[in-house]
Simulated assay, not measured.
Amino acid sequence: MDQISGVQQYHQLFGTKVYDADTAFEFLTIAVFQAGMSWKVAASKIPVFKQVFANFDYHKIAMFDEPDLEAIESNSNMIQNGRKIRSVLQNAKAAVQLEPEFNNLADYFWSFKPDKSEEGDRDTIGAVVAKDMKKRGFEFVGPTTMGLLLVGMGIIERRPNA
C-alpha cells in the first residue's frame, strides 16, 4: 500500500467491476470527501481513510462512537471536515440497513445497472441513485458524484474521452 499512492490506487481501480462491499464503501467514502474538491485530493487520502475508517468495513464503522469520531477529526492527516467525517459514520449505518434487502452495499449499487438503452445517461442514473440513497439515510450523495461512483465501480461504462 505504501509503495503506491492513493491517487494511483484509485486510478487503477476506477472503471473496473467492483463487487466487494468494502471496496464499494471505499468509493462512497471518496465520493463524500470529493464533494467540493478535486477527486485527486480525496483519492490521495485513501491510505488515511483506510487507517481511520477500519479498512472501509462499514459494519465496523457503524459501531463507531463519539470518541472514535473525535479521534478521526483530530488526526492531522485527515481532511478536516467534521460534517463529512460524521457522514461516513451515517453512511455506514445506512449501508448496514440495506441488508437483508440487498446482500451488501455493492449489491445495492449493482441493482441500478441500466439496460443497454439507458447506458449512456450517467447523470440521470446518478440522480435516481442519489434520491434513493438520501431516502435511505445516506449523506453527501449528490447526483454527479453518484453517477461517477457507478462509473468507478464499473456499473456504468465510461464515456469516451471521460
Rank of each mutant, 00 (worst) to 15 (best):
I4H: 05
Y10N: 09
H11L: 06
H11V: 04
F14V: 01
G15S: 09
T16N: 09
T16K: 10
T16G: 00
D20C: 03
A21G: 03
T23C: 02
L28G: 02
A31V: 02
F33W: 03
Q34S: 12
K40R: 12
A43E: 07
S44C: 04
S44P: 03
I46C: 04
V48K: 10
K50M: 08
K50I: 02
Q51C: 06
Q51H: 13
A54D: 14
Y58H: 14
Y58G: 11
M63G: 09
D65F: 01
E66K: 15
D68V: 06
A71L: 14
S74E: 15
Q80A: 15
N81C: 12
V88K: 08
A92E: 05
A95S: 15
L98Y: 07
P100E: 10
E101T: 12
N103L: 06
N103C: 01
Y108Q: 06
D115H: 13
D115T: 11
E119M: 13
G126F: 04
A127W: 03
A127Y: 06
A127N: 14
V128Q: 14
V128P: 00
A130P: 05
D132W: 02
M133V: 09
R136H: 12
G137D: 09
E139Q: 13
F140N: 07
V141Y: 02
T144R: 14
T145I: 15
T145C: 06
G147C: 10
M153K: 04
G154H: 03
I156M: 10
N161K: 12
N161C: 02
A162C: 01
